[in-house]
Amino acid sequence: MLSRAARPALRAGAAAAAARPAALNATNAATYATLREIEGRLKSIRNIEKITKTMKIVASTKLTRAQKAMTESRTYGQTSNTVFENAETKPLEGEGKKTLVVVCSSDKGLCGGIHSGMSRKTRRMLAEKPDLDLVILGEKCKAQLGRSNGKNIVLSFAGIGKDVPTFADAAAIADQITMLPTDYTSIQIIYNKFVNATSYDPVTVEAFSEEAIAASPNFAAFEIEDDTLSNLREYALSNALFWALAEGHACEQSARRNAMDNASKNAGDMINKYQILFNRTRQAVITGELVEIITGAAASEEG
């Protein structure tokens, strides 16, 4: 019912200029109806604009916090990466060993294509190596990848992206990943790298396995005892996860801000268009009524 009622107004909006003669030709009853329809649509677009504007403001305030958290978390990730850089750790090249891919998305949508960008990257990796296992953080990528690559998923996490991710989140996820029965030679974490406020890149960061750390050429320089090696690996994994989560969160907020900015702009454009259409139709109705009165008066004078 609603869609059918909205259709004439929509068509009129698409071709405002072309619709004018049509509106003039239409019967009076129909013109009144479109006038009311246009008014209704105007109201609803105004409401949508209000909502998107508010969401933009919310995202902006969250973005500043998220960016702060991101710069702080970068320290965690980079410090732990320095160890591996100095030790010249490289992922082990071995046949029959499994790779785990952790996809860091979030639960919420309405933020443009950042989740689908990550899903695309994951699918590309799956096309090259079909036996990857997936761990998915966040509902959005779970829904996208669950449909196409459900067989590869081993774990999925939900509840991410409500707030700035904490280290406790990352540590708990890392624990659950380390407790997986399969032994993975390398864990790759896919997240959105924050390039600037308008562009993000899905990239991977590597978390190494114990053997890979032990086999790294410069490893002896650190004098790590064997017992602590597994601790280092667990800690490095949660560090990397924390970094990825925080950076992904910042990207999401900034993407949402942009998406909502565009949505508000579009709503503003539509409001302008409909306002003009509304005024024109109103005048057409008035002119039509005047013509009728004058013709009526002229006819009664003659008679």
């Binding site: 459900g150 998923i153 996490f157 939900a158 509840g159 406790a168």
Partner: peptide, 17 residues
């Protein structure tokens, strides 16, 4: 607040959550 953690998770088997 920094130590809060409220995540849910699910294990997947053969493409089913």
């Amino acid at each position: 607040r920094r130590g809060e953690m409220d995540l849910r998770f699910a294990k997947w088997q053969n493409g089913k959550q």
